[in-house]
Design a protein around this nucleic acid. Structure first.
Length: 244
DNA sequence: AATGATACCAACCGCTTTGTA
DNA sequence: TTACAAAGCGGTTGGTATCAT
């Protein structure tokens, strides 16, 4: 969309200055100025951008443009099926807490995830409520899938060293079940440095995807820890009865 | 080819939270 | 403690692209 076209739209005047600030789509030149500003000054203090970079944009607009579009660590391209499954699961857990969900998807923004959800799932959720039979069937398939996943996890968690680590976390927290955050913390910053690889494999089992990056594997594994860590701890108890 | 429906996404708005003086 | 500014967040809007009829 060009600014020329935008400017012609009725009602809201895009790309024009309102109360001293430009609004509407960003031009390549504005992007360049903003990138240059961040290079020199870092992120933050967005209200200084107008003065220091010569942009006629308010701080809010600059921050948004940077966070959602210009940041170099943004992942471009379509949401992958893996990311989609994460979005679905995290949304089921946290609802519309897009920024929280986005933290589990490196390189994706809350805005991107929000848009993706709205276009792909909101309608589906709505339509499923209009068709209870299909909805039930989907739920059943989902439950079966989750059961399979759980069984896989039980197998993976038979890894003796992995169990030892979880047990130690239990011990350290007075037999309270370690939280998701605790486990993640332990993986990101292991108390014993040589345990990082171990924890990777513990959480992921050995079913790593060859083309997946370490980071993908890590996040996949983190996700698979699931929201109910208590159940994971119960695996320890279940192992004997289930597989021995 | 024309038209309408839908998907996609950038950007805005208003409210809330956080930081700081 | 308080007031203000900055940053963060979620909801919404509206334009373009694409697909279906």
């Amino acid at each position: 969309m060009t600014l020329g076209v935008m400017d012609q739209h009725m009602g809201m005047e895009w790309g024009v200055i309102q109360e001293g600030w430009r609004k509407g789509p960003w031009t390549a030149e504005e992007d360049r100025l903003l990138i240059e500003y961040v290079k020199l000054n870092g992120e933050g203090r967005w209200n200084n951008v107008a003065r220091l970079a010569g942009l006629k944009r308010n701080g809010k607009s600059c921050r948004l443009r940077w966070v959602n579009y210009l940041r170099p660590d943004l992942k471009r391209g379509q949401i992958t099926p893996h990311e989609e499954s994460i979005i679905l699961e995290l949304h089921a857990r946290w609802g519309n807490r897009w920024s929280t969900i986005a933290r589990s998807l490196p390189g994706r923004t809350d805005n991107e995830i929000k848009n993706y959800w709205r276009t792909h799932f909101k309608k589906k959720v709505k339509s499923s409520s209009e068709n209870p039979e299909k909805s039930r069937a989907r739920l059943l398939r989902r439950q079966q899938f989750q059961q399979q996943q759980q069984q896989l996890h039980q197998l993976h968690l038979q890894d003796q060293i992995g169990l030892k680590k979880i047990l130690s976390l239990l011990d350290e927290s007075d037999n309270k079940v370690p939280t998701f955050t605790q486990l993640r913390q332990e993986i990101m910053y292991p108390s014993a440095p040589d345990e990082q690889g171990l924890l990777y494999s513990m959480i992921n089992g050995y079913a790593t995807v060859p083309e997946a990056s370490n980071e993908d594997i890590l996040w996949d594994g983190l996700w698979n820890l699931d929201d109910n860590i208590t159940e994971r701890a119960n695996y320890q108890h279940n192992l004997a009865t289930t597989f021995y």
